[in-house]
């Protein structure tokens, strides 16, 4: 691949292998997986449970290291980085959205967002301004001071999205983001992803079983037993509402 081509890539995975041990059984998580993800793409990883979606997401997100193979994020190899450097990479370049929302329960919606920014060294006034703006952007204006327990699942997930994108990451990784949401909130969330992808150019990699989510993505990778079995690229997302303002 030429330099020009590689500069257009958000993620490059080369021959990733990962195995786990469960008791005395060896489980294959990734089996020689190689994929390139272009900048600004909106990609869906699908497949049955245990197919390796989350393992691949963890490897791309520098949460876990593969047994062999290479992971590149924007021309930087990350699988050999130290633990601290991987944490810095996650903080500054990658946003995460999890199935279980995973907000810090003792902090308000705004404080959850500001906490990460504080660790990034953003000044207090700037933090406050940016977190208010991002909460407004995800439709959480007016609910800044509520703690997670005082928010619905959909609202919590929107706060989690706000936390993921507040530092303007180039890549957002979402692991089953709609699994704990009702259909209306799930649709709002995926439409929010589409909007952020379109307006901010953020690359989204979403691991999901949800066919509605898949219908919003331009690329669909199907995994089985740790291997990529299909890689479908669409010119336009199949869902008619893709790209509309969700709120």
């Amino acid at each position: 691949m030429s330099n020009q081509q590689s500069s257009q890539l958000a993620v490059r995975c080369l021959n990733l292998c990962k195995t786990f041990t469960q008791g005395e059984t060896r489980v294959v998580g990734l089996d020689d997986v190689s994929i390139d993800i272009a900048k600004g793409d909106m990609l869906c990883l699908s497949g049955p449970s245990g197919s390796g979606k989350t393992t691949l997401l963890n490897a791309i997100g520098a949460l876990d290291t593969p047994d062999s193979g290479e992971v590149w994020i924007e021309n930087k190899r990350i699988d050999q980085l130290s633990k601290g450097d991987r944490a810095d990479l996650r903080m500054r370049h990658i946003g995460f959205v999890f199935q279980a929302f995973n907000l810090i329960p003792v902090l308000s919606a705004q404080e959850n967002i500001e906490f990460v920014m504080e660790l990034q060294g953003v000044a207090a006034a700037e933090r406050h301004k940016m977190s208010s703006a991002i909460l407004e952007q995800v439709g959480m204006g007016g609910l800044e001071h509520r703690r997670p327990a005082q928010l619905s699942g959909g609202q919590q997930q929107r706060v989690a999205v706000a936390r993921a994108i507040v530092s303007r990451p180039s890549l957002v990784l979402a692991d089953e983001p709609t699994a704990n949401l009702d259909s209306q909130n799930a649709l709002q969330l995926i439409e929010l992803f589409t909007q952020l992808n379109t307006e901010m150019g953020i690359t989204f990699v979403i691991a999901t079983h949800d066919t509605r989510v898949m219908s919003y993505c331009r690329r669909l990778i199907r995994m089985v037993d740790g291997q990529v079995v299909s890689d479908e690229i669409r010119d336009t997302p199949s869902h008619p509402d893709a790209g509309k303002d969700p709120f």
């Binding site: 990479l89 995460f96 810090i104």
Partner: peptide, 15 residues
């Protein structure tokens, strides 16, 4: 689990 989440969003374990 909460510390795992914080670590995932980029908080160093030393922090």
């Amino acid at each position: 689990r909460e510390f795992g989440i914080m670590s995932a969003v980029g908080v160093r374990t030393s922090t």
